[in-house]
Nucleic acid binder design. Structure first.
Length: 556
RNA sequence: GGGCCCGUAGCUCAAUUGGAUAGAGCAUCAGCCUUCUAAGCUGAGGGUUGCUGGUUCGAUCCCAGCCGGGCCUACCA
């Protein structure tokens, strides 16, 4: 739908032709920004006159039909925006392998197969009365369980449901649907989920069920695959296609699914799992995890700082939901640019020899020439710089943003605050990276390898028994908990535990770092002991950071 | 109407699933750079864990009822 709206924006609002759009894509470095603004404008344009919504449905229809100008424009736009998305995510070290598209789910008849399966197994039934008359519907999980508990589930779900409805006495009347009237219980289940509308079209959830049956290899159909994009590191991304290339990697047939989708999708996700379970694939349904997390919202203060106008009633709220339709949100690339810029300034402040004046001169020159395709302004130019300071700044800013996103537990609505997200001090990614860099620096100056330090022959018993022994033992203990914490993260699908652990370990190490000066330690054996301590903490910190996708620069 | 989630220091969040004096960061204030990088360290102030009951030796956590906020549900994708 968003693509359809952007198509409407280009054709109706801007009267652009296909070749105009091609030219625009070629000459704009951030075409997605252009579409973001256009999408918000189109949404406003619809508001002005409801008649204009016809343009959207026409576009949707044409796109679905295929083989026409609008469909080609849609293809151009979605391809260009998708490429931009891959680039943006790559800046955060996130790579994709395969991009399945809804259009192929439709055109390769995934839904038809799933529909057939679900009718056969009695997962769906045709409603003949009530408000859902004429639809194919599915019983919601809550009622399904009740029916199963009444021990009628030896048949198909539909037969069990019919038997159950014929004998309401088998169910506990008080634990029922929230209906008090006995007679209503055997009426049509108005709460059932509509999968196929009365006009014969399938809804989003239906397509999602088909898609997930494919993921588990239960559909009996497959996508066609085409090469879509090759990352700078040569990793290849594939995209779904009606007619694919003959040689392609194998996707699908998975043993477990983790769907990382925000909590607003909980209901449709439950419907998909339920469909798979009712089809008899209980094993697969048990390995289907909706990795649900709360949404990111803007604090009113942050929204005002970003220059958005905030309604009076919203100012008192603790957060406001972001909205593409309203053009209200923060763009990831902007955030990354700001973070990299800030990090680079800090790197140079600490390492003045890395200051590269020539880069600034080049960027300023290009900016003055208005060479938009290469550079938007001096600040954005850093995106493409590869000098040492910029490389480090990228690692640090990625660490900062990844840590920021992971430090919140999944059930917490992230009240996004720009200054918090760009912070490098306190409980942040760079704080942890800095601890590792400090350890690294000690080994560099000591002239030994961390692995060597761990293998050294040390009288541990003597040093742990000394005055500061307990405190250092606690540091070892905390470092030793890392594997357990990582396992716990996986078992509970809660990455925030890893983030918290990494921070606490870094914090305790910084403490140790200040209390015990390693390189000037006179007692040779104690020096080895302290080095081994630094080595084990460094190793465990890097390990837990790696789990979070955070790497450590050589210096910072 | 129904379902799910949240309410903890001025702000943003934790609390290892029911355990000891509820902890961090930010912000504020006071200290620490001729010693391995100050993106750091030390200290101070800041709390009736929304309210009221219940279960328990013990409750931020479990139960019930209120108050306040959010999200999802109603043949859109």
């Amino acid at each position: 739908m968003q693509v359809a709206d952007v198509v409407v924006g280009f054709t109706q609002l801007q009267s652009k032709s296909k070749s105009d759009i091609v030219a625009l894509i070629d000459s704009t470095s951030r075409f997605d920004y252009y579409c973001w603004d256009l999408y918000a404008r189109v949404s406003q344009w619809y508001e002005g006159d409801k008649e204009r919504l016809k343009a959207r449905s026409d576009a949707l229809h044409a796109i679905e039909q295929g083989s026409n100008e609008l469909a080609e424009i849609a293809e151009l736009i979605s391809r260009a925006v998708l490429l931009r998305h891959l680039e943006t995510m790559d800046r955060l070290d996130i790579e994709y392998d395969f991009l399945p598209r809804e259009s192929e789910i439709l055109r390769l008849h995934f839904w038809e197969s799933a529909f057939e399966l679900m009718k056969q197994k009695g997962v769906l039934y045709f409603e003949t009365e009530g408000k859902n008359k004429g639809c194919w519907v599915m019983t919601r999980p809550k009622l399904s369980r009740q029916i199963e508990d009444s021990a009628l589930s030896t048949k198909t779900p539909t037969q069990a449901r019919e038997a159950w409805m014929g004998h309401p006495e088998t169910a506990d009347p008080s634990a029922s649907l929230g209906v008090t009237d006995e007679a209503e219980k055997i009426g049509p289940d108005e709460d059932a989920k509509v999968i196929v509308r009365s006009n014969g079209t399938v809804g989003y959830v239906g397509k999602d069920i088909a898609y997930h049956l494919w993921k588990f290899g239960l559909l009996g159909r497959d996508f066609g695959y085409r090469r879509f994009y090759r990352y700078p590191n040569q990793h290849e991304v594939w995209i779904s296609a009606e007619l694919g290339e003959p040689d392609h990697p194998h996707f699908g047939n998975v043993a477990a699914i983790y769907n990382v989708i925000d909590s607003r999708q909980a209901d449709p996700q439950n419907t998909v799992v339920e469909a798979i379970r009712l089809l008899g694939y209980t094993e697969q349904a048990a390995h289907y995890t909706h990795f649900s997390y709360e949404m990111v919202a803007l604090t009113p203060r942050c929204a005002l700082e970003l220059g958005y106008e905030i309604k009076e009633e919203d100012r008192a709220k603790s957060y406001i939901e972001v909205s593409g339709r309203k053009g209200f949100g923060v763009k990831a690339d902007d955030l990354l640019d700001a973070a990299i810029h800030k990090a680079r300034v800090k790197v140079i402040a600490g390492n003045p020899e890395m200051d590269d004046q020539a880069l600034y001169r080049d960027a300023a020159q290009q900016a003055m020439q208005g060479n938009d395709a290469i550079v938007q302004d001096v600040q954005n130019a850093i995106t493409n710089w590869t000098d040492p300071a910029s490389r480090i700044a990228k690692i640090v800013s990625t660490g900062a943003l990844r840590y920021f996103m992971l430090k919140y537990t999944r059930a917490t609505v992230i009240a996004f605050d720009l200054s918090d997200a760009l912070a490098f001090e306190g409980e942040t990614g760079p704080y942890i990276q800095y601890a590792v860099v400090r350890a690294e620096s000690i080994f560099k100056k000591a002239g030994i390898d961390p692995e060597q330090a761990l293998a050294a022959d040390v009288d541990y018993a003597r040093h742990f028994a000394a005055d500061s022994g307990t405190e250092i033992w606690e540091l070892w203990l905390l470092a030793g908990k890392t594997s357990f914490v990582i396992e716990q993260c996986i078992a509970t699908t809660e990455p925030a535990f890893a983030a918290k652990h990494a921070f606490q370990l870094a914090q305790q190490f910084n403490n140790f770092y200040h209390r015990h000066h390693i390189l000037t330690e006179a007692d040779e054996d104690r020096k080895k002991f302290l080095l081994a301590t630094a080595a084990v903490v460094r190793r465990e910190l890097m390990r837990v950071l790696a789990v979070m996708g955070i790497t450590v620069p050589p210096v910072m």
